[in-house]
């Protein structure tokens, strides 16, 4: 039983990380209908900037928590500036182009960022420092670290704040209006371009935070880390219903749980024919299954009509 519980915890932590990254995808998609393929790379930049800041500050002897805080305060503006530039120069000129055009542009940005990161941080893998003391909690025989608890809490809090912002604030209202119909929103006096830029920038701040949490949880950062993570997070966002904040969280957690329980129990379920090497298949099969019966994802309703 403790093993099962442990797998649930593993899944929740993994899922929270996916959710943090997926929030960035889903915000941009919600407002522009654009898969911001480069978001995973922005997360990567966030992680590497945080890493560098912490490495510089380690000799100062400050407590790790403070280091982490400072590093994310540095990383967030960097990511925001980056996202601003990406939106301004790679996406905005393409808003009227066919839908695939910004996608290819995004792939180009991805490749560009990866190689820039490789030039700055080198080809190696960097050991990410511990940002919290290694405290374990014991829940019914299963282990959960302080960091993991914080990760889950942070993902939930971020989601809550975002959902509140979109539903309750005037900025959120403007965002929803822009998503609904940009032309009319413009006529209503909403500065559509600024709203879109803001969405990207908020997404980038989240990416910086996600980068820090990914680095801390997996204790490794390198220039190639954004790709797979971005892909998984995007899958999570689609699973939950892309464009929907709660959906991203739900999709992330679900994907994390599927992967964790899949890896843990496929072998027993199939009598040893399939092993943990098929865990990704499980995730994709669930995705296909969900989309066949609910073409808009778990929480999405209207997006399928838009395509």
């Amino acid at each position: 039983m403790d093993i099962f519980l442990q797998q649930i915890i593993n899944g929740l932590v993994l899922g929270s990380i996916y959710a943090l990254v997926a929030l960035g995808y889903t915000m941009v998609y919600g407002i522009l209908g654009l898969i911001n393929f480069a978001h995973g790379e922005v997360v990567m930049i966030g992680a590497l900037v945080s890493y560098s800041v912490m490495m510089v500050l380690v000799p100062s002897g400050l407590p790790p928590v403070l280091l982490a805080l400072i590093s994310v305060l540095v990383a967030a503006p960097v990511c925001m500036a980056l996202a601003w530039a990406i939106e301004r120069y790679a996406y905005r000129p393409l808003r009227h182009a066919p839908k695939l055009t910004p996608l290819i542009s995004a792939i180009g940005v991805s490749i560009l960022l990866q190689n820039l990161a490789m030039m700055i941080w080198g080809r190696g893998y960097h050991a990410f420092p511990d940002i919290l003391p290694a405290i374990h909690f014991d829940i019914g025989g299963a282990q959960i670290t302080l960091l993991q608890t914080v990760t889950i809490g942070l993902a939930a809090a971020t989601m809550g704040i975002l959902a509140w912002m979109i539903q309750r604030t005037s900025l959120g209202q403007a965002m929803r209006a822009t998503a609904e119909n940009p032309a009319i929103a413009e006529l209503m006096g909403i500065p559509v371009n600024r709203i879109i830029t803001l969405t990207f920038i908020i997404g980038a701040a989240l990416a910086a935070l996600a980068g820090l949490m990914v680095g801390a949880n997996y204790s490794v950062a390198h220039y190639y880390m954004g790709f797979m993570l971005g892909l998984k997070a995007f899958t999570a966002a689609v699973l939950g219903g892309i464009g929907n904040i709660t959906g991203a969280m739900l999709g992330g957690l679900l994907l994390g749980l599927i992967e964790s329980l899949g890896a843990g129990y496929i072998e027993d379920l199939t009598g040893g024919i399939l092993g943990s090497h098929y865990q990704d298949i499980f995730a994709f099969l669930v995705l296909i299954g969900v989309l066949v019966f609910r073409p808009g994802g778990l929480m999405g309703e209207r997006v399928s009509e838009r395509a």
């Binding site: 209908g33 892309i242 098929y278 296909i288 073409p295 395509a307």
Partner: peptide, 22 residues
């Protein structure tokens, strides 16, 4: 995937490609 459109189709086909490779 007949009912799916746009980006939903994209992610499902992507998954299909990965399934074959795996």
């Amino acid at each position: 995937t007949l009912k799916l459109r746009g980006d939903y189709l994209a992610i499902v086909t992507l998954g299909f490609g990965e399934i074959i490779r795996i």
